[in-house]
């Protein structure tokens, strides 16, 4: 069909997805700091207030607990609030509302209260920012029963996953790799049929080792796979996409073939998603493993000043180093 295919950035894909969701259901509301007139500091909500009005695209007072807390009330009243947290490091004033209220209301009310809320958080580093603008808080939410946590790594997933998250009846923490917002454009076919939301995806087949990534590190993993291919090593790359629940069947299938797995995320290694994934792989694929599951991530320190962030963040070399260590084990 003509006119439904275009080349878009992640920012544009998300913007189009939000627009689609708002057109499809007039209960969908956007709330957050600077999301209205400005269109958000990353312009993800650009133009939406103009087209859907101030009742549906709400510039909120500067208070994250206030934003999420009032979104709870909106959800109880039948709305589907999509909350924008301006940067990862600013979600914590809302942390209490998220883990004590948003996550538990369905359970506490025996399912009588639905919480179809999406909390969008630009996350991850590499943009040369000051403190609190480059963090990866996913494990803190994935650790909380009642919340679902997903992350898109590319424009096409951004477009589909945000719509799926909004249509989903449970609260979803939706993590967007901010470094990718305005990076490459990808061909988006709006008539395609997307994969279900809570599924992971093999994004590059390979046979020697399996590299698991999500959000910003998918790109790193793909580059590593390319370099490794040049050196005669075949890496399979899986984009996890969903962090809670995890969809590990494709991972197990892969590791049973390769016998080796490396998990890559920007978040701290200690008790990061990689720890859970390594445990599950060990439980499911113990006899297929040729090496321990290795984790590559941010060091267990606060996020450093930006002049050091490229050292702190897992990069191509650190992924390849882990792959080598796995192969040589």
């Amino acid at each position: 069909m003509a006119g439904t295919t275009s080349k878009v950035t992640l920012a544009k894909g998300l913007n189009m997805g939000l627009r689609k969701a708002m057109e499809a259901d007039d209960k969908v509301l956007l709330m957050g700091e600077d999301v209205g007139k400005l269109g958000g500091v990353f312009r993800i909500t650009d133009g939406l207030q103009k087209d859907f009005g101030e009742d549906r695209v709400i510039d909120s007072p500067l208070a994250e607990s206030g934003i999420v807390g009032t979104a709870v009330g909106m959800a109880m009243r039948g709305y589907r609030p999509v909350v924008e947290i301006q940067f990862d490091g600013f979600v914590y004033p809302a942390y209490d509302q998220i883990v004590c209220q948003v996550a538990k209301l369905h359970f506490r009310s025996q399912g009588r209260i639905k919480m179809p809320m999406v909390i969008r958080i630009p996350f991850g580093g590499g943009i040369g920012a000051v403190e609190h603008h480059s963090e990866s808080p996913e494990a803190q939410f994935a650790h909380t029963p009642g919340l679902k946590v997903v992350t898109c790594s590319n424009p096409v997933d951004g477009y589909w996953m945000i719509q799926q998250a909004i249509a989903h009846d449970d609260p979803v923490i939706f993590l967007e790799p901010k470094r990718q917002y305005h990076a490459e454009k990808t061909e988006l076919d709006e008539d395609a049929t997307p994969a279900p939301l809570f599924t992971s995806k093999v994004v590059r087949p390979g046979s020697d080792a399996t590299v698991l990534a999500y959000g910003p590190t998918v790109k790193t993993a793909m580059k590593a796979a390319e370099v490794a291919a040049g050196e005669g090593t075949s890496l399979e790359v899986i984009d996890l996409r969903t962090l809670s629940p995890l969809d590990l069947d494709p991972v197990f299938a892969s590791v049973r073939r390769t016998g080796r797995a490396v998990v890559v995320h920007e978040a701290h290694v200690n008790l990061g998603l990689g720890s859970e994934i390594a445990a599950r792989i060990t439980e499911e694929c113990f006899y297929a493993l040729e090496a321990p599951v290795l984790r590559v991530g941010g060091f267990d320190t606060p996020y450093p000043a930006s002049r050091l962030e490229e050292e702190w963040l897992p990069d191509l070399d650190r992924v390849l180093d882990a792959v080598d260590r796995s192969l040589e084990f």
Partner: peptide, 10 residues
């Protein structure tokens, strides 16, 4: 101003 939001919002 708080970025793009005028004082009236607060």
């Amino acid at each position: 101003w708080a970025i793009s939001e005028p004082i009236e919002r607060q």
